[in-house]
Protein backbone atom coordinates (compact mmCIF):
# COMPACT_ATOMS: atom_id res chain seq x y z
CA UNK A 1 0.00 0.00 0.00
CA UNK A 2 1.10 3.54 -0.62
CA UNK A 3 -0.11 6.94 0.46
CA UNK A 4 0.14 8.77 -2.82
CA UNK A 5 -2.13 11.71 -3.63
CA UNK A 6 -3.23 12.53 -7.17
CA UNK A 7 -5.10 15.70 -8.06
CA UNK A 8 -6.38 16.15 -11.58
CA UNK A 9 -7.75 19.36 -13.12
CA UNK A 10 -9.13 20.70 -9.86
CA UNK A 11 -11.26 23.82 -9.95
CA UNK A 12 -12.94 25.51 -6.97
CA UNK A 13 -14.97 28.70 -6.77
CA UNK A 14 -16.40 30.79 -3.98
CA UNK A 15 -19.60 32.69 -4.75
CA UNK A 16 -18.97 32.38 -8.48
CA UNK A 17 -15.41 33.63 -8.20
CA UNK A 18 -12.74 31.12 -9.16
CA UNK A 19 -10.36 30.57 -6.27
CA UNK A 20 -8.39 27.59 -7.57
CA UNK A 21 -8.29 26.49 -11.18
CA UNK A 22 -6.62 23.91 -13.28
CA UNK A 23 -4.52 22.37 -10.52
CA UNK A 24 -3.06 18.93 -11.18
CA UNK A 25 -0.23 17.15 -9.41
CA UNK A 26 0.84 13.78 -8.17
CA UNK A 27 2.71 13.11 -4.97
CA UNK A 28 4.27 9.83 -3.97
CA UNK A 29 4.09 8.63 -0.39
CA UNK A 30 6.76 9.46 2.13
CA UNK A 31 7.02 13.09 1.21
CA UNK A 32 6.83 16.32 3.11
CA UNK A 33 4.99 18.67 0.80
CA UNK A 34 4.79 22.44 1.10
CA UNK A 35 1.95 24.37 -0.49
CA UNK A 36 3.22 27.88 -1.11
CA UNK A 37 1.98 30.97 -2.88
CA UNK A 38 1.06 34.59 -2.10
CA UNK A 39 -1.81 35.67 0.17
CA UNK A 40 -5.14 34.85 -1.39
CA UNK A 41 -3.55 32.36 -3.78
CA UNK A 42 -5.98 29.69 -2.63
CA UNK A 43 -3.60 27.59 -0.54
CA UNK A 44 -6.07 26.82 2.23
CA UNK A 45 -8.85 26.50 -0.33
CA UNK A 46 -6.80 23.88 -2.17
CA UNK A 47 -6.28 21.94 1.04
CA UNK A 48 -9.96 22.13 1.98
CA UNK A 49 -10.96 21.03 -1.51
CA UNK A 50 -8.63 18.03 -1.35
CA UNK A 51 -10.22 17.11 1.99
CA UNK A 52 -13.71 17.52 0.53
CA UNK A 53 -14.58 20.18 3.12
CA UNK A 54 -15.83 22.53 0.41
CA UNK A 55 -17.60 21.71 -2.85
CA UNK A 56 -15.50 21.62 -6.01
CA UNK A 57 -16.55 22.67 -9.53
CA UNK A 58 -14.68 19.92 -11.27
CA UNK A 59 -11.63 17.72 -11.04
CA UNK A 60 -10.63 14.45 -9.43
CA UNK A 61 -8.78 13.75 -6.25
CA UNK A 62 -7.59 10.31 -5.31
CA UNK A 63 -5.71 8.89 -2.40
CA UNK A 64 -3.76 5.87 -3.55
CA UNK A 65 -6.48 5.28 -6.12
CA UNK A 66 -9.25 5.57 -3.53
CA UNK A 67 -11.78 8.34 -2.98
CA UNK A 68 -11.67 10.57 0.06
CA UNK A 69 -14.66 8.76 1.59
CA UNK A 70 -12.72 5.53 1.76
CA UNK A 71 -9.66 7.03 3.44
CA UNK A 72 -11.25 9.75 5.58
CA UNK A 73 -10.41 8.25 8.94
CA UNK A 74 -6.79 7.97 7.86
CA UNK A 75 -6.55 11.71 7.32
CA UNK A 76 -5.40 13.91 10.18
CA UNK A 77 -6.07 17.62 9.94
CA UNK A 78 -4.46 20.40 11.95
CA UNK A 79 -6.50 23.59 11.52
CA UNK A 80 -5.18 27.13 11.49
CA UNK A 81 -4.75 28.30 15.04
CA UNK A 82 -7.17 31.20 14.69
CA UNK A 83 -10.00 28.81 13.76
CA UNK A 84 -10.04 27.29 17.22
CA UNK A 85 -12.05 28.52 20.22
CA UNK A 86 -9.27 28.58 22.81
CA UNK A 87 -11.76 29.24 25.63
CA UNK A 88 -13.50 25.91 25.04
CA UNK A 89 -13.73 23.91 28.27
CA UNK A 90 -11.28 21.18 27.33
CA UNK A 91 -7.92 20.20 28.79
CA UNK A 92 -4.80 19.30 26.83
CA UNK A 93 -5.03 15.54 27.30
CA UNK A 94 -8.67 15.43 26.21
CA UNK A 95 -7.85 17.54 23.15
CA UNK A 96 -5.27 14.97 22.10
CA UNK A 97 -7.75 12.20 22.82
CA UNK A 98 -10.07 13.67 20.17
CA UNK A 99 -7.57 12.23 17.71
CA UNK A 100 -8.71 8.75 18.68
CA UNK A 101 -12.37 9.50 17.88
CA UNK A 102 -12.28 8.79 14.12
CA UNK A 103 -11.21 5.22 14.80
CA UNK A 104 -13.70 4.64 17.61
CA UNK A 105 -17.15 3.51 16.53
CA UNK A 106 -20.17 5.75 17.07
CA UNK A 107 -21.24 4.02 20.27
CA UNK A 108 -17.76 3.62 21.70
CA UNK A 109 -16.32 5.94 24.26
CA UNK A 110 -12.65 6.61 24.72
CA UNK A 111 -11.31 4.64 27.69
CA UNK A 112 -8.09 3.96 29.54
CA UNK A 113 -6.30 2.76 26.43
CA UNK A 114 -7.09 5.97 24.58
CA UNK A 115 -6.00 8.04 27.57
CA UNK A 116 -2.64 6.31 27.70
CA UNK A 117 -2.15 6.65 23.98
CA UNK A 118 -2.98 10.37 24.19
CA UNK A 119 -0.32 10.75 26.90
CA UNK A 120 2.22 8.98 24.71
CA UNK A 121 1.47 11.32 21.82
CA UNK A 122 1.82 14.28 24.18
CA UNK A 123 5.23 12.99 25.20
CA UNK A 124 6.34 12.91 21.59
CA UNK A 125 5.70 16.63 21.27
CA UNK A 126 7.15 17.33 24.72
CA UNK A 127 3.89 18.52 26.26
CA UNK A 128 3.11 15.75 28.77
CA UNK A 129 3.59 18.02 31.77
CA UNK A 130 0.75 20.24 30.53
CA UNK A 131 -1.79 17.43 30.18
CA UNK A 132 -4.22 18.92 32.73
CA UNK A 133 -4.00 22.52 31.51
CA UNK A 134 -6.88 24.17 29.69
CA UNK A 135 -5.78 24.72 26.09
CA UNK A 136 -6.14 28.52 26.26
CA UNK A 137 -3.46 28.64 29.00
CA UNK A 138 -0.76 27.55 26.56
CA UNK A 139 1.46 29.63 24.31
CA UNK A 140 0.91 29.57 20.55
CA UNK A 141 3.72 27.09 19.97
CA UNK A 142 2.50 24.80 22.73
CA UNK A 143 -1.01 24.89 21.31
CA UNK A 144 0.30 23.92 17.91
CA UNK A 145 2.26 21.02 19.43
CA UNK A 146 -0.87 19.79 21.18
CA UNK A 147 -2.75 19.78 17.89
CA UNK A 148 0.09 17.89 16.27
CA UNK A 149 -0.15 15.36 19.11
CA UNK A 150 -3.85 15.07 18.32
CA UNK A 151 -2.99 14.29 14.70
CA UNK A 152 -0.46 11.68 15.87
CA UNK A 153 -3.13 10.12 18.09
CA UNK A 154 -5.20 9.46 15.01
CA UNK A 155 -2.57 7.05 13.59
CA UNK A 156 -3.27 8.55 10.19
CA UNK A 157 -1.58 7.95 6.85
CA UNK A 158 -2.08 11.47 5.56
CA UNK A 159 -1.41 14.63 7.53
CA UNK A 160 -2.72 18.03 6.51
CA UNK A 161 -1.51 21.10 8.39
CA UNK A 162 -2.79 24.59 7.68
CA UNK A 163 -0.14 27.23 8.45
CA UNK A 164 1.29 25.38 11.46
CA UNK A 165 4.25 27.72 11.95
CA UNK A 166 2.42 31.03 12.11
CA UNK A 167 3.14 32.96 15.30
CA UNK A 168 4.97 30.23 17.20
CA UNK A 169 8.34 30.09 18.94
CA UNK A 170 11.48 28.60 17.35
CA UNK A 171 11.75 25.58 19.61
CA UNK A 172 8.14 24.56 18.96
CA UNK A 173 8.75 24.99 15.26
CA UNK A 174 11.80 22.73 15.49
CA UNK A 175 9.90 20.09 17.46
CA UNK A 176 7.08 20.12 14.92
CA UNK A 177 9.31 19.90 11.85
CA UNK A 178 11.31 17.08 13.45
CA UNK A 179 8.12 15.07 13.97
CA UNK A 180 6.84 15.82 10.47
CA UNK A 181 10.14 14.51 9.06
CA UNK A 182 9.82 11.36 11.17
CA UNK A 183 6.32 10.84 9.83
CA UNK A 184 7.44 11.06 6.22
CA UNK A 185 10.29 8.65 7.00
CA UNK A 186 7.64 6.22 8.20
CA UNK A 187 6.02 6.52 4.76
CA UNK A 188 3.28 8.98 5.67
CA UNK A 189 2.32 11.79 3.33
CA UNK A 190 2.51 15.19 5.01
CA UNK A 191 0.92 18.21 3.41
CA UNK A 192 1.67 21.67 4.83
CA UNK A 193 0.21 25.03 3.81
CA UNK A 194 3.14 27.31 4.37
CA UNK A 195 3.67 31.03 4.46
CA UNK A 196 7.24 31.88 5.27
CA UNK A 197 9.52 31.21 2.33
CA UNK A 198 12.79 31.42 4.24
CA UNK A 199 12.90 27.79 5.39
CA UNK A 200 11.26 26.17 2.41
CA UNK A 201 14.36 24.38 1.16
CA UNK A 202 15.22 23.14 4.62
CA UNK A 203 11.76 21.77 5.40
CA UNK A 204 10.19 20.29 2.30
CA UNK A 205 10.85 17.60 -0.27
CA UNK A 206 8.20 18.67 -2.72
CA UNK A 207 6.52 21.97 -3.35
CA UNK A 208 3.22 22.96 -4.85
CA UNK A 209 3.45 26.55 -5.94
CA UNK A 210 0.13 28.15 -6.71
CA UNK A 211 -1.41 31.48 -7.39
CA UNK A 212 -4.97 30.39 -8.14
CA UNK A 213 -3.52 28.36 -10.99
CA UNK A 214 -0.78 25.85 -10.46
CA UNK A 215 2.54 27.50 -11.26
CA UNK A 216 4.68 24.43 -10.71
CA UNK A 217 4.85 21.31 -8.62
CA UNK A 218 7.65 18.87 -8.01
CA UNK A 219 10.87 18.50 -6.04
CA UNK A 220 11.92 21.62 -4.14
CA UNK A 221 15.01 22.19 -6.35
CA UNK A 222 12.90 22.40 -9.48
CA UNK A 223 10.14 24.60 -8.04
CA UNK A 224 11.94 26.98 -5.72
CA UNK A 225 13.52 29.04 -8.47
CA UNK A 226 13.55 32.82 -8.75
CA UNK A 227 11.72 33.02 -12.07
CA UNK A 228 8.90 30.70 -10.89
CA UNK A 229 8.62 32.49 -7.58
CA UNK A 230 8.40 35.78 -9.41
CA UNK A 231 5.68 34.39 -11.62
CA UNK A 232 3.70 33.21 -8.59
CA UNK A 233 4.16 36.32 -6.49
CA UNK A 234 3.88 38.51 -9.60
CA UNK A 235 5.82 41.17 -8.04
CA UNK A 236 8.74 43.38 -8.06
CA UNK A 237 7.57 44.09 -4.48
CA UNK A 238 9.95 43.75 -1.57
CA UNK A 239 8.37 40.45 -0.59
CA UNK A 240 10.86 38.46 -2.66
CA UNK A 241 13.85 40.18 -1.16
CA UNK A 242 12.38 39.94 2.30
CA UNK A 243 12.12 36.24 2.18
CA UNK A 244 15.46 35.79 0.54
CA UNK A 245 14.37 34.02 -2.58
CA UNK A 246 16.22 36.20 -4.98
CA UNK A 247 19.29 33.99 -4.74
Amino acid sequence: MSNAITVNQLQVSYYGKTAVKNVSFHIEQGNLIGVIGPNGAGKSTLMKAILNLIPIDKGEISFDGKTIKEVRKKIAYVPQRNNIDWDFPIIVRDTVMLGTYPNLGVFHRPGKKEKQWAMECLKQVGMESFSKAQIGELSGGQQQRVFLARALAQKADYFFLDEPFVGIDISSEQTIIKILKQLKDEGKTVFVVHHDLSKVEEYFDELILINQELIESGPVESVFKPELMKQAYQTPFPILNDVGVGV
Binding site: I75, Y77, P79, V106
Partner: peptide
Protein backbone atom coordinates in the same frame (compact mmCIF):
# COMPACT_ATOMS: atom_id res chain seq x y z
CA UNK B 1 -18.39 12.25 21.81
CA UNK B 2 -19.79 13.52 18.52
CA UNK B 3 -21.41 16.57 20.14
CA UNK B 4 -18.15 17.43 21.87
CA UNK B 5 -15.89 17.21 18.84
CA UNK B 6 -18.30 18.91 16.44
CA UNK B 7 -18.75 21.80 18.87
CA UNK B 8 -15.03 22.19 19.45
CA UNK B 9 -13.57 21.58 16.00
CA UNK B 10 -16.17 21.31 13.24
CA UNK B 11 -13.48 21.29 10.54
CA UNK B 12 -11.70 18.24 11.90
CA UNK B 13 -15.06 16.58 12.47
CA UNK B 14 -16.03 17.12 8.85
CA UNK B 15 -12.57 16.02 7.69
CA UNK B 16 -12.99 12.61 9.26
Amino acid sequence: KELLISSFDPTMSAAY
